[in-house]
Nucleic acid binder design. Structure first.
Lengths: 340, 340
DNA sequence: TCGAAACACCAAAGCGCTTTGGAAGGCTCT
DNA sequence: AGAGCCTTCCAAAGCGCTTTGGTGTTTCGA
């Protein structure tokens, strides 16, 4: 059932039927009702390929997925996706993932924009002076950055959490509890979020004339194994830290294992605070010693990004507004005063 | 730069240029070279929207993503996606995720097929007599099932791992080691993979005249917390199992925690074998007691599914061939003879 | 009563590609 | 030399929608 058939059946022109269906004003309400009714009754759905050729609108949002045998997709991605999908579903949006060589995403961005494959894109895990952000900005496709870049000479729309503030608060608490030697087990140091978190810790320490030494911060991919290795390295030093801030729950698993392997205890020998993106399958309160966390639901962020993308597509959002969400600090058993 | 401009610039018809570019035989090789050359020089890329309207081919594969605030996307998904993306990238395929109400995926399947939004789809986490499989089969779109359904009155193409065989082997080993009371901490019991795994365990036990009691199998969503709860429930019984087979590494984390909480040890009091889908961020060899596993890379499965989908789209694969991959049994420190 | 504005509708021209149905020219073969 | 066949190209008709640029009919103010 296509438009021609439907309009023929209604003894109307395609123009009128199309307009009736798309809510244009220049059509009699009575006629519109007839058209709407017939469309529903015959299950008419405009062919998206045709509509898309005519309008350029696709009803899809895009994401360039870095791939490669050595590239691991972040497990956070799936939670973000949950939120995004949740919103997208209620607005009849689809998401298209365009796999790209991790080292050459630019080609793919150019392709999807040139081909008008999607109405908008989002960018995640941005880095300082991120070239992808600069690229999509000049290409002129609507976009939202999940996270922030830095040092770009233009403004752009983003949704981020207050990573610096979160880790500032966490470190401040630890310092207040008497800890003098802190360490940070961070994510990939090239990403902005990691930089912000480090900045937060440093700022809190500086307020008490403490410094985070070169060896006190580990920036690694967020795996359990890396958490373990980093913790071992830190804790086996003679001036081992008495408190650690950790960028992910998964790494925290490794930290806990290292602590146990070394015959130490939490929080007796080490206080630990980790960032929690809120996974349904791994909860900080269920750690053998309940884990204090800086908490922010990445799923909600996904929904929000989708919402803003939709708003940008429809034109109801414009400009380069960035929004920064506060992060909760949740205290549980894994922190205590510094050992004397 | 569109076809009309390009053909005009070459003083050829659109027909000829189109055919030259698409490798049709009825065009002079010399001409083809000229066309190809000009196309490359001017960066001509056929507009996919137009091509798609004309041919119906989209260059995309589809996946219906169940969503909802109470629905959690499996973290396995992201690993599968890695593999899929890896293959898709090298074949210029994109993946479109269509979010759907988890309780009504049928509408979405019908929509993407009716709208010809994708060339093929894959279905994951199938259940016995899965309606989605039946649906896409009748809708006539090329598809591959990742996993298997059961009790369908037709054959269909799938790629699955030998879940039954894997858990049969695991249980057989445990029985050989003298264990008499086994338990299974499984995934969602409505899914085929879970049924197969249970079947494997039962078969191995039956061979030694053992049975898996009603209370010896827990079928739950694969979270750390559920692993913990299930293990506690099992281990606090007077006739606690001396060996557990577990369907996921994440649940195994919970099992290990429960064992520790109860003051028991692995493998002294409990032998544990878990299924490992091979996550980069959580490895069985890094468990405090290295975990024995049935191992199968879900990432490779993703790549294989993509490969088969591409083959089906191009027509080079047909029929309902199902393939079942063997699973490795990897013995590590978490298994030992039954306590006496 | 007339002209203008408002209303309700339509024919046809895109959007940019593929594909059908030729057609012109050169070749072979008898 | 003429029939028949390749080879190589082309004009035009789709694909199914939106949108432009109207037309005919009412309504309304002056």
């Amino acid at each position: 059932m296509n438009l021609k058939q439907l309009s023929h059946m209604l003894a109307l022109s395609q123009t009128t039927v199309s307009r009736a269906l798309n809510g244009y004003p220049e059509v009699n309400e009575e006629t519109r009702r007839r058209v709407m009714d017939a469309a529903k009754r015959h299950g008419y759905r405009p062919n998206p390929s045709a509509r898309r050729l005519a309008t350029g609108k696709t009803g899809m949002i895009g994401y360039v997925l870095p791939t490669g045998t050595t590239v691991d997709i972040d497990p956070h991605f799936v939670e973000f996706l949950s939120g995004l999908g949740d919103y997208a579903r209620s607005h009849e949006l689809d998401l298209v993932l365009s796999p790209a060589d991790a080292d050459d995403q630019e080609t793919t961005y150019r392709r999807i924009v040139a081909n008008r494959q999607v109405d908008a894109v989002y960018i995640s895990s941005p880095r300082p002076a991120d070239r992808r952000v600069a690229l999509v900005n000049t290409l002129g496709i609507p976009f939202i950055v999940h996270g922030r870049s830095e040092g770009l000479d233009f403004d752009y729309p983003f949704t981020d959490i207050d990573n610096e503030g979160a880790f500032h608060e966490a470190a401040r608490l630890l310092v207040q509890l008497g800890h003098r030697r802190l360490a940070l087990i961070n994510g990939d140091g090239r990403e902005t979020f990691a930089i912000h978190r480090e900045r937060g810790v440093r700022r809190a320490m500086a307020a008490s004339s403490l410094v985070l030494g070169e060896g006190d911060v580990c920036s690694l991919a967020m795996t359990e194994e890396n958490g373990y290795r980093a913790a071992r390295r830190l804790l086996e030093r003679s001036d081992a830290p008495t408190a650690i801030a950790c960028s992910s729950l998964i790494m925290a698993l490794g930290v806990v294992r290292a602590v146990r392997d070394l015959g130490l205890t939490i929080p007796g020998d080490l206080s630990l605070i980790a960032h929690d993106d809120v996974f349904p399958w791994l909860k900080p309160e269920n750690f053998s010693v309940p884990l204090s966390t800086t908490r922010s639901s990445i799923r909600l962020a996904g929904a929000r990004v989708a919402e803003r993308l939709a708003a940008r597509i429809s034109g109801s959002e414009q400009g380069a507004r960035g929004e920064v969400w506060p992060v909760d600090l949740v205290i549980r058993g894994s922190v205590a005063g510094a050992p004397t």
